[in-house]
Amino acid sequence: MPVSSRLVALIVPFVVIAIFWLMARREAQRSQDPTRKSYFERNGTTLGIVFILLVAFWTLFLVVLPYLYMVVESFHPTLPPPKRGGPEDVLTLAQYKSLVVLPTGGTNVTHMGAFVFSIVASIAVTALNFAICYPLAYYMAQAGSAQKVRLVMLGLIVPYWVNEILRAFSLRLLLASKGLINQALMAIGLTDAPIDFLGNNVGLYVGLSYAYLLIMIFPLYNAIESLDKNQIEAARDLGAPWWRIHWDVVIPYAKPGIASGCTMVFMLCAGSLAAPLFLGGPRTLWFTSVIYNFFFQAFNWPRGAAYSFILLIACIALVMLMLRLFKVSLGETIK
């Protein structure tokens, strides 16, 4: 039934609207407070319907449908347009399998390598980003005077007015073999020959960390800022050295913020395209580049979609595992 799978995309909108409708109807019954009015009593029938339609539109066209289309696409074989919907258009797991086993036979070392590298590098960037942001966020939230914090904040935000590509390229200029940093290093005699920062992926790590600095720093800042200063002083008064205060008091308290920042940075990193493309070494292949090529170079949407979902599911699984390991609930991270 090749056509019906794409038909699902048409049925789903009605299902979504029906779900919202039922939620609105049931809301009053589930409430503990008997004086609470139902959804339609509060908003009136017309306005109530308009609200439901608006929310449904948002959910459908911005959230559900695009992904749904991709999910459906990823289970189809790669076919030229005339053959779509024809007898060869069957549901298949071939696109997913192709990450491990090439359609022509043999192991898909290149793509698996890119996949593993992207995940591992994203973890490394997240860790690096946390190491940079935690002291900064702590300074801003607890230690610094209001005026200095404003300056730091400005210094953090202003560079983000520059667009990502310009930022990546200027970083490239800085790190190139004849760039400013190598020139400076050679001038003070720390090194004889220029260091290949870009080939060694140093540029990639620096660029990605820099790109997502704010995304790490604000959840951390928010979490640490609400910590009662007396807690820190109490620990200090009881004899704790500075690192123990952080380990025992600040970090446990800021855990939801840390989890939230790390999750976002990791997800964005693994899914980023520009920075790895411009700053990665010549031998470096980022998984999103592979996906990009399937969509825009090979016009192989089903395989691109399948790869995207593998990446998405791997990232979600990893994040869930980390949250479980550090005993943070998903709800806490979005507070």
């Binding site: 109490a234 620990a235 200090r236 008064d237 704790a240 025992d248």
Partner: peptide, 29 residues
């Protein structure tokens, strides 16, 4: 520093550690 003085301070808002148990709080020092 305060962590090296033979004093202990009880704060106005007590500043107990909310994520530790009562016993952990007491024996933190």
């Amino acid at each position: 520093g305060p962590n090296k003085r033979p004093t202990a301070l009880i704060f106005q808002n007590l500043a107990l550690f909310p994520l530790m148990s009562v016993a952990e709080n007491i024996t933190y020092g």
